[in-house]
Structures are given as structure tokens and as C-alpha cells.
């Protein structure tokens, strides 16, 4: 009984650890000009299993995403959802709790995903805001992909967001 309790507590602690790594994300959407279009993007984003809440700003054509606790966040799926609504990503930023990520020689990892940012170790602040690079995110030349060793999941290229 006691062992089971310890397992449950450990599990809860692990889940709690995962959830807080990505605090929120903001996606800028190109081509949006009306509330009907904005609503269709919001609906596509809300379909994603790891998305808890979407708050669209029609004036700035940006959406702020909150994520479900303990879920695996797939940023490529966010970009794809915007495309599925018929629009394109202008930028994708994510605020990450740097104290809860696992450092890697090329950046850091969250779960199975590798985030390429060599200067990650030098980030002093607890939270850092990154901009995703790559064609899917309409930013920079570096392509995020899934083939970069050693990550089992996605590999994202990042730069610090302003």
C-alpha cells in the first residue's frame, strides 16, 4: 500500500515537472483579415489534443496558446493547424521554463524533442522566450526536422525572441 502511494506520488511529481516546461506559446498568423477567418484558425488549434486554451487577438492576428498539463506539445502540429485553416504562420514563439528543461550539448530537450540553441546554458533568467525557425514557422533558414540525432522526437531550431 505504502509502495503504491510512493509510486503515485512520484508519478504526480514527474507529471508536474513536464507540464511546466513550456509555459505558453504565441502564434502570429498571416493572411487573417476577418473574425470568421480568425475563428476558423482558433477551431483548428483547439482540435489539438495538447491545447488547453486559445486566445485569439483579432487586431494583431495573433493567438496565445495554453497547454494541458503533462501533455506532449508538438509545435509542428500547431503550424499545420494554422495551414489547415487556410493561412500561414508569421511566427511561433514559446515561453519556456529553463530551470525545468534538460540541457544538451546542442541546446536542451523536453521529453523526446531536441531544441537547438547552443547558448542555452548561458541563459540566466528562469524563463526564456524563443522563436521557432524553419519553413513551417516562416522564420529563418534553419529547418526544424525529425532526423537530427539523438532526439527521438522532433528537432526544433530556435533563436531568442525579442
Amino acid at each position: 500500500m505504502f509502495k503504491r502511494f510512493v509510486y503515485v506520488m512520484l508519478l504526480l511529481m514527474m507529471v508536474n515537472h513536464c507540464q511546466a516546461q513550456v509555459l505558453s506559446a504565441k502564434v502570429g498568423i498571416n493572411g487573417l483579415t476577418c473574425s470568421q477567418c480568425s475563428r476558423s484558425v482558433e477551431i483548428q488549434l483547439r482540435k489539438l489534443s495538447f491545447v488547453k486554451n486559445v486566445n485569439m487577438n483579432l487586431a494583431s492576428t495573433e493567438g496565445t496558446l495554453q497547454f494541458k498539463e503533462g501533455s506532449d506539445i508538438d509545435f509542428l502540429k500547431i503550424a499545420k493547424a494554422v495551414k489547415d485553416a487556410g493561412f500561414s504562420v508569421r511566427f511561433l514563439d514559446a515561453e519556456i521554463d529553463m530551470q525545468k528543461v534538460k540541457m544538451h550539448e546542442k541546446g536542451f530537450t523536453i521529453g523526446n524533442d531536441l531544441y537547438l540553441f547552443p547558448d542555452a546554458k548561458n541563459i540566466q533568467s528562469a524563463n526564456a522566450k524563443f522563436r521557432f525557425l524553419g519553413k513551417m514557422f516562416s522564420s529563418g533558414k534553419n529547418e526544424s526536422n525529425t532526423n537530427e540525432s539523438p532526439a527521438k522526437g522532433h528537432v526544433y531550431s530556435l533563436k531568442l525572441a525579442s
Binding site: 498571416n30 493572411g31 483579415t33 493561412f87 508569421r90
Partner: peptide
């Protein structure tokens, strides 16, 4: 079939 898109902020 939409074969060409050039999207910008508040325009396309």
C-alpha cells in the same frame, strides 16, 4: 484548388 498563396500581416 488554391495553388498560390502569398500571405502577409492583414493581407493576402
Amino acid at each position: 484548388y488554391r495553388f498560390f498563396s502569398r500571405d502577409g500581416e492583414n493581407e493576402h
